[in-house]
Simulated scan of single mutants.
Amino acid sequence: MTQRLDLTKISPDGYKAMLGVHSYVQNSGLSLGLLELVKIRASQINGCAFCIAMHVPLARKHGVSDDQLHLLAAWREAPIYSPKERAALAWSEALTHLTGGDVPDAVYAEIRQHFSEKEVADLSFAIAEINAWNRLMICTRTPPQFGSPAA
Rank of each mutant, 00 (worst) to 15 (best):
M1P: 10
M1G: 14
T2L: 10
Q3V: 08
Q3E: 14
Q3F: 02
L5W: 13
L5Y: 15
D6W: 02
S11T: 13
D13K: 13
Y15G: 05
K16R: 15
A17F: 12
A17Y: 09
M18G: 02
L19P: 00
G20Q: 06
V21P: 00
H22M: 11
S23P: 01
S23F: 11
G29E: 08
S31A: 12
S31Q: 08
S31W: 01
L32T: 11
G33A: 10
L35R: 08
L35Q: 08
V38F: 02
V38D: 00
I40G: 01
I40E: 01
R41M: 02
S43P: 08
I45R: 08
N46D: 10
G47T: 07
G47M: 06
A49C: 08
F50S: 00
F50H: 08
M54Y: 02
V56E: 12
V56F: 01
V56M: 05
V56N: 01
V56W: 01
P57C: 05
R60L: 13
K61H: 12
V64W: 07
D66Q: 15
D66L: 10
D66A: 12
D67M: 12
D67I: 11
Q68L: 07
Q68V: 06
Q68M: 11
L69S: 05
H70N: 13
L71P: 02
L71K: 12
L71A: 14
L72I: 10
A73V: 11
A73W: 07
W75K: 07
W75Y: 15
R76G: 11
E77S: 14
E77L: 14
Y81F: 15
S82R: 13
K84R: 15
K84G: 09
E85S: 06
A87N: 06
A88C: 11
A90C: 06
W91K: 05
S92N: 04
S92E: 03
A94K: 11
L95I: 09
T96W: 03
T96Q: 05
L98P: 02
L98Y: 09
T99M: 08
V103G: 03
V103P: 01
Y108P: 02
Y108W: 15
A109W: 05
A109H: 13
Q113N: 13
Q113S: 13
F115D: 01
S116W: 04
E117P: 02
E117C: 03
K118T: 14
E119W: 05
V120H: 01
A121D: 10
D122K: 04
D122Y: 12
I127F: 04
I127R: 03
I127H: 02
I130A: 01
I130W: 04
N131Y: 00
A132R: 06
A132I: 09
W133T: 00
R135V: 07
M137G: 00
M137P: 00
I138H: 00
C139N: 13
T140S: 12
T142W: 00
P143S: 06
F146A: 09
G147N: 04
S148H: 14
P149L: 03
A151C: 09
